[in-house]
Nucleic acid binder design. Structure first.
Length: 464
RNA sequence: UCCUCAGUAGCUCAGUUGGUUAGAGCGGCGGACUGUUAAUCCGUAGGUCGUAGGUUCAAGUCCUACCUGAGGAGCCA
């Protein structure tokens, strides 16, 4: 009478009662008296727990004493319709094996709720909470849906390098990668470090974007995407920034900026739909605990078109808004957080895609418009989290691209391979970057990006 | 990096114009209870008041520096 090992998810959905089953999982709570005890067991397969009913007389006292919050047990017994209220099925324990104890004196997770700040300090244990179980399942589901969307639409997953030899991506401060002895650096007379003896024989860093390499893939496979870790050594201390995060970057040959916007909008809506369809229980939990409007907001996003306006139009709207902004708006300056929030949350009340920014405030690779002063960049702005996507049509004209590189004094010699795509069979193409954690943040309704990645890396924090 | 706020028991917090032995709830531990749902009830232990200086007869409380955390801003995804 062993019973097949099943998950909590399988057992809670089962209607085959009065059969012997086996469950393995972690104890969330135990309560009871001298006669009967109840242990709620969870194995992460679903947010709900399975109630294990224990006839105290049938088991060793020491064993029961060690079944505490956080301990891990292996239970065989009969699956029955619950005799009590609050759950439909429960497990009548016949045999219990204790896998691992959890000393109640020191185990930090209690039955009651904890602050998210405290849970960040015990990130090694927080996956065992309802909140992080829900977030991590949704995170997985989104990652899966991303691959599914692209695969179903003819995109190829391109693995761009994590270690990069170019620092001209222009997306922020980089983390140095070196095997040089930091206590004895090879320095010349002028104090310049000689990297010729370093592992790669040159200065290398962790990538801040896979875009440039992504473009190389798109110039052969037509439709590619990347999905990998990305690193920024910015001293950013906000609920929306991480030093190590995951980014999705589709890049498509023959797409102009309008195709690019269509892709971005369809992609985001697909991902949100996928989670609405597949993570109902987890979304409902997060809605009840953290964000009362979560599910309505997600449905709202999917049932409305994103507003598409040019940067110039956005400036007009802001100038005519009558709002007092801390940073005054004028054509040529970048949109501040307060401006973006006004457009998204007050004026349009839905996601907004802003396009055609001034050339001076955008990256060198964006396609120049005929007006000579704007480029075909696009930012997708979401309520609550701001910029979720940044992208553009790329400049495919070799001479125009070279002109920008020279104007910005970028190191041309490091970009020879990138420039070759404009020399040999150049084509119009477009792409964008989606911050994965920002997407998870929006979909889960959580307030801090450090709570949607298992082990966050931020300034002064690389624990675990 | 800048601005603001915070740091007191395992957790969440209270602590008066500076004044005797620093409190509560939850959690833990012991006990009661024949089906509980964040169980309930009774009892009990638990403190380097972030760190280092300083002011004072006296500092959890006031001052300075630093550390850590949170929120806002910048940078961005």
């Amino acid at each position: 009478m062993k019973g097949k090992k099943e998950t909590v998810k399988q057992l809670l959905n089962s209607t085959e009662y009065d059969r012997t089953v086996n469950i393995k999982g972690w104890v969330r709570t135990k309560r009871g008296n001298n006669t009967i005890a109840f242990a709620a067991i969870n194995d992460g397969s679903v947010i709900h727990n399975l109630q294990v009913v224990i006839d105290v007389q049938k088991f060793d006292e020491d064993l029961l004493k060690n079944i505490t919050t956080g301990s891990c047990i292996n239970v065989t017994g009969k699956l029955v319709q619950s005799l009590g209220k609050g759950q439909t099925v429960e497990l009548q324990a016949e045999n219990i094996e204790l896998y691992g104890t959890a000393d109640p004196e020191t185990y930090p997770l209690q039955k009651k709720g904890h602050s998210l700040e405290f849970l960040r300090e015990i990130a090694h244990l927080r996956p065992r909470t309802n909140t992080f179980g829900a977030v991590l399942r949704i995170r997985h589901t989104l990652a899966f849906a991303i691959h599914k969307y692209f695969n179903d639409n003819g995109f190829y997953y391109l693995h761009t390098p994590i270690i990069t030899g170019s620092d001209c991506e222009g997306a922020g401060e980089m983390f140095r990668v070196t095997t040089l002895d930091l206590k004895n650096l090879p320095v010349d007379d002028k104090g310049t470090i000689d990297y010729s003896g370093d592992f790669f024989g040159k200065e290398t860093n962790l990538t801040v974007s896979g875009q440039l390499e992504g473009e190389l893939g798109a110039m052969a496979l037509s439709k590619i995407y990347t999905f990998g870790p990305t690193f920024r050594a910015e001293n950013s201390n906000t609920p929306r920034h991480l030093a190590e995060f995951w980014m999705i970057e589709p890049e498509v040959a023959f797409y102009d900026i309008n195709d690019n916007m269509d892709l971005a909008e369809d992609f985001l809506k697909y991902l949100i739909s996928y989670v609405l369809d597949n993570c109902k229980d987890d979304l409902e939990f997060l809605q009840n605990m953290y964000d009362k409007e979560l599910i309505d907001r997600l449905k709202f996003i999917n049932s409305n078109n994103f507003e598409r306006i040019t940067y110039t139009r956005a400036i007009e709207i802001l100038e005519q808004s009558g709002q007092q902004f801390e940073f005054p708006v004028h054509w040529g300056s970048d949109l501040q957080t307060e401006h973006e929030r006004y457009l998204v949350e007050k004026y349009f009340k839905k996601p907004v895609i802003v396009t055609d920014y001034p050339m001076a405030i955008k990256a060198f690779y964006m396609k120049q418009n005929d007006d000579g002063r704007t480029v075909r960049g696009m930012d997708v702005l979401f309520p609550k989290i701001g910029e979720i996507i940044g992208g553009s049509q790329r400049e495919e004209n070799f001479n125009k691209l070279m002109q920008r590189i020279n104007e910005l004094k970028l190191p041309q010699k490091d970009l020879w391979w990138y420039l070759d795509t404009r020399k040999y069979g150049s084509a119009p193409h477009s792409g964008f970057g989606l911050g994965f954690e920002r997407l998870v943040l929006f979909v889960t309704g959580m307030g801090n990006i450090r709570d949607v990645i298992p082990f966050p890396r931020t300034p002064k924090n690389a624990e675990f």
